[in-house]
């Protein structure tokens, strides 16, 4: 039983990271209709930015996180302006190809700038061991889970109660009507991309703290996609739940079966969800686009 609970908790911590990245992805998709294949690479960028803040600028951890988040936000806004705004109105496939190209460019650029070696944060978030009964948790796991809860809640509140959040919801649902009502869709898209990049960067900071910073972080970031699909392509809470599920499934299958089987279990679960409920767990049955 302890074995199961221990794995469950580890899975939730890791799943929170996937959930954060997935959240950013869904956000961008809902607001701008862009299927961002580079989302996992933005996670890697976040980790490397954090590394730069810590190792090159020698900032204390808290300051480094803030600096990384701000830089990620600016990067997201720039990506929207430079890459996605000019592509507005283009067919879906064109935009998808652009995100794939972006993904490759980011991966290549990271290797050129930082080399291919594993790097590690010179100072990390607190990672002492916390014992709760027979369960052993890393403080880092708790911080990650806590942060994810805070982030998701913050975004939920943002969407529900702020004017900008309302504008984003309106634009996502009916861009034409939103324009008629005086909503500047360009600004909405920029904000969406900024937030989407920030959540991915946060995932990168956490993942880089859990393990090492390397080009393979991009691949781990790819696990956000099953999370998105399971949760429902248009549901923000769904993406987080999807991420948690994927994380837990990964850990449980690694614990009860073998490492090899883990991927099979995760993707079989994904397939099962899609077969039984094509819109994902919390998605809407069909996405209306006018």
């Amino acid at each position: 039983m302890i074995f199961f609970l221990q794995l469950l908790v580890s899975g939730l911590a890791v799943g929170s990271v996937y959930g954060l990245v997935a959240l950013g992805f869904v956000l961008i998709f809902k607001a701008t209709d862009v299927f961002n294949f580079a989302q996992g690479d933005l996670l890697a960028v976040g980790a490397y930015l954090m590394f730069v803040a810590l190792a090159v600028f020698n900032l204390p951890v808290a300051l480094a996180i803030i600096a990384t988040v701000v830089a990620a936000g600016i990067l997201g806004a720039m990506l929207q302006r430079v890459v996605f705004k000019p592509l507005q109105g283009q067919p879906l496939l064109t935009v998808v190809m652009a995100t794939i190209a972006l993904s490759l460019i980011i991966q290549g650029a990271l290797v050129i700038i930082f080399g291919s070696q594993d790097l590690s944060f010179p100072r990390t978030l607190p990672s002492s061991i916390v014992a709760i009964g027979a369960l052993r948790l890393s403080m880092l796991d708790l911080i990650i889970m806590g942060c994810s809860v805070v982030c998701v809640s913050a975004f939920a509140l943002f969407f529900r109660y702020t004017s900008l959040g309302l504008q984003m919801r309106a634009t996502a649902e009916h861009p034409e009507a939103a324009a008629l009502s005086g909503i500047n869709s360009d600004r909405v898209f920029t904000v969406a991309f900024s937030i989407g990049t920030v959540t991915a960067a946060l995932g990168g900071i956490f993942l880089g703290s859990l393990q090492v910073v390397s080009p393979t972080l991009s691949q781990i970031g790819l696990l956000a996609f099953p999370a998105v699909v399971v949760g429902g392509l248009t549901s923000i809470p769904g993406s987080v739940i999807g991420g948690l599920l994927i994380g837990v499934l990964q850990q449980l299958s690694a614990g009860y079966f073998d490492g090899a089987v883990a991927s099979v279990v995760v993707y079989s679960g994904l397939l099962l969800v899609l077969l039984l409920r094509p819109q994902g767990l919390l998605g809407r049955p069909s996405v209306q686009r006018h």
Binding site: S163, L166, Q167, R169, A170, E173, H174, E176, A177, A178, A179, L180, S181, G182, I183, N184, S185, Q288, H290
Partner: peptide, 30 residues
């Protein structure tokens, strides 16, 4: 369009174009 809307021109479009998932209050807010 959004610039024109802010210059004092409002439209009730054909087919209404409402936001199905937003509340009436939120429509007024928008």
């Amino acid at each position: 369009a959004h610039h024109i809307a802010r210059k004092g021109l409002s439209q009730v479009p054909e087919g209404r174009m409402i936001f199905a998932n937003l509340t009436v209050a939120e429509h007024l807010q928008i």
